[in-house]
Write a protein that binds this DNA or RNA. Structure first.
Lengths: 125, 125, 125, 125
DNA sequence: GTGGTCTAGACCACG
DNA sequence: GTGGTCTAGACCACC
């Protein structure tokens, strides 16, 4: 699944998992209709509790990205997620502020953005 | 101070304050050596708990961006913050994933990045 | 059979099937003594797992609405189901709460109730 | 809080709690801005686990009925909840089917509906 | 086999 | 003092 959790990361574990899967969906590594790994299996693979993964799947479900069926499992439902323009701008601004304060020059930041965007959108068209 | 808190924002209040001040520092609106408002005053202005502002200042201090002296208040100590490349990339990727999943086309995303970056770096050179 | 399953429905599939058949019985579309489709056939028609239909029939049986004989299939046994007044009220209240919170005015709710009731009781006399 | 949980009820405990609070909100017993009891207190009052109540609050939050603030608590945010017409009709039909199959005559059902609706909407205008 | 619910209890984050 | 997260482990519901 190409997912890792990092204890140094300030985000909650379930959030890292949810964000990681969102990236996989954006990239198309998880296409619409693709099954997600069973909660228990992913929990075992990542060495975390079952409920932690369940929380991640719950977030993905409430974002409309996956559908979870009781006896079957979870599958990717959509590659689109609702977010207001305001929130998107705010999110981006907060992230960019980190890079600017880290001292990266504008050109370098644009390079990284371009690079990440390329990876994230490789499956978009 | 041009700081606002938004109850619709998913971030914690102290985080909104800290992030807001970071943006002000990045933009140069708060230059090196500039004094930050007293905790009590900012708390009153924003209508939040005093401890909330204290938590924000604590984060800024641990990031090395401000120094807090008892009695004389807080001042901007630096416009640079340590962050590993990994962490920066991760932060940016997580933010960009939101925009991509929201369905924004690449060109639009680059426009927003460029726009935000312009605002954030206006005081850099 | 006029039964459909809807993946957007929050209810479990077996529950949708059981509820759907209950509505057919209430309406008289399935009269007392009428045979239900064989489990295998209904499963095939709806494109769901055989056990799912079996679970639905099991609920109908435990409600006393059908009898299942090995070899001869299931038939409608009764058009009456035991339910305590408390439970009925609770069920109705929970449903009505949804409509009220959805912002429907009283008149509109009464119209829908009347409409649905008319359909459900058309075979009652 | 006028909330009770019933082990005979087929709904999950957290669902009973969520539904109960929804009814209180619809009735206006919990007005907009009113604080909900702390998770731990309600858990103790009802004799269930803290996480069970947290799950109920999470549902109310995702329905947009309450907002939960980290160090403060939960307050009623709105008395309106989004639901599609289809879903509302389906919900009502399923509930009414129970009453019809329980053998209640039309007049009696309308009486109960009217009664419940009166209670639920007492705080609407 | 799948996910869902619930418990008990610990620890952290927020205001 | 508030809610959030995480764990370990049990049992249930669904397909």
């Amino acid at each position: 699944m190409l997912l890792t959790i990092d204890t140094a990361d300030r985000r909650a574990i379930y959030q890292q998992v949810a964000d990681g899967i969102k990236a996989l969906i954006a990239r198309g590594d998880l296409a619409e209709g693709a099954p997600l790994p069973p909660v228990r299996q992913l929990a075992a693979d990542l060495g975390v509790n079952l409920n932690t993964i369940a929380a991640a799947y719950r977030e993905l479900q409430s974002d409309g990205l996956i559908t979870v069926k009781h006896g079957s499992g979870a599958v990717v439902a959509s590659r689109t997620m609702e977010r207001s323009d305001d929130e998107l701008r705010r999110t981006l601004r907060t992230a960019l502020t980190q890079l600017v304060l880290a001292g990266l020059p504008k050109g370098r930041i644009l390079n990284i953005v371009s690079d990440e965007l390329h990876t994230l959108m490789k499956g978009t068209k």
